[in-house]
């Protein structure tokens, strides 16, 4: 297997904020001009004022390539796949508006020495909160660069003390069709479930996010707690988690249940293994015109490839 090296780059190589804002401001002005010329009325959100509020991309970059820069907050928080709030990518931001992710309970159970049910605040308290900038690759061949805020998943696992029998971790999203209108349709089997092998869950890259851009996670991004595994396709990043269970058998995952030939358990980003209906060799970075090549393990091969040594990744897609 050919693996491209992905040296983590220093934060100094990320476009400085001021620079970046200038570019957006320029584009916004050009946008207004363009709109004038074409006679198309623009939504107010596209105005220069909207752009000026772009928050700062906090955190240490992990696995970013030299031309990777954070995807604007507006795109990160308005272009979402979150079927609990509708199947269109512009729907979650609307349909999750009234969702209140408090109080929130997280249950940790299964094959662990310390099963418990936590209030979210107590669940998070013992762990250090970190900001990390990760690449994000959706199975639909688009990608972003997202500054997450959250805690290391490994931290939570160590506290729960899995028994020797525990081989996998299963995550479950809140089931509440009253608050999550998408759950009233049977487009997927609810509640959404996802899983990782225990060693994957212990990988230092795996995090439980509570925020983006240094702010609390917006509802449409999976408030108040979601999984982030940047070497896997985005749908592995289960949102609004209420349960973390340790098991000895490979757990189900919502998309695997929906279309097993299309979405496997592992779902590692892999440019050489096509989705049956489209190629995964390239991706369109949100905000860019031309597609860029997709990297093995989304650019995190150095940190994760060893976990899959000797596995046929074509079979274990």
């Amino acid at each position: 297997m050919l693996v491209r090296r992905t040296d983590p780059i220093g934060s100094s190589e990320i476009t400085p904020e001021a620079h970046y804002l200038n570019r957006r401001e320029f584009l916004a002005a050009a946008g207004l001009l363009g709109a004038g010329l074409t006679g198309v009325a623009l939504p107010a959100s596209a105005s220069a004022a909207g752009r000026a509020q772009e928050p700062k991309a906090l955190g240490k970059p992990y696995g970013l390539q030299s031309d990777d820069k954070p995807t604007p907050y507006k795109d990160v928080t308005s272009y979402n796949n979150f079927y609990e709030f509708g199947t269109g990518k512009d729907e979650p931001i609307e349909n999750a508006r009234g969702f209140v992710p408090r109080p929130w309970t997280v249950q940790v159970d299964g094959l662990v020495a310390k099963p418990a049910s936590y209030q979210l605040e107590d669940f998070l308290k013992p762990s250090a909160v970190e900001d990390r900038i990760y690449r994000h690759r959706c199975v639909e061949a688009w990608s972003m660069v997202i500054p997450w805020r959250g805690i290391a998943l490994a931290d939570v696992i160590k506290r729960a003390q899995p028994t020797a029998a525990a081989k996998f971790v299963e995550f479950t999203t809140l089931m509440d069709p009253k608050r999550m209108p998408g759950q009233r349709s049977n487009v997927l089997q609810w509640p959404y479930v996802e899983g990782l092998r225990l060693d994957e869950a212990l990988n230092p890259l795996a995090m439980l996010a509570t925020g983006v851009y240094g702010r609390d996670l917006p509802n449409q991004n999976g408030a108040p707690l979601r999984l982030v595994v940047p070497w896997k396709y985005g749908f592995k990043g289960i949102k609004s988690i209420v349960r973390i269970r340790f098991v000895d058998k490979m757990p189900n995952s919502a998309w695997n249940l929906a279309a097993p030939q299309e979405y496997g358990f592992y779902s590692n980003v892999n440019p050489d293994v096509d989705h049956p209906r489209w190629s995964q060799a390239k991706e369109r970075r949100i905000g860019e015109f031309s597609r860029r090549p997709t990297l093995m393990f989304n650019g995190y091969a150095e940190q994760v490839a060893s976990m899959y040594a000797g596995m046929d990744l074509r079979k274990n897609y």
Partner: peptide, 19 residues
């Protein structure tokens, strides 16, 4: 027109992924 303004001027008329 919407596509042109999105691609040339980043207006998001067609959202985050205009193409």
């Amino acid at each position: 027109a919407g596509t042109a303004s999105d691609l040339l001027a980043d207006t998001r008329f067609f959202g985050s992924n205009p193409i």
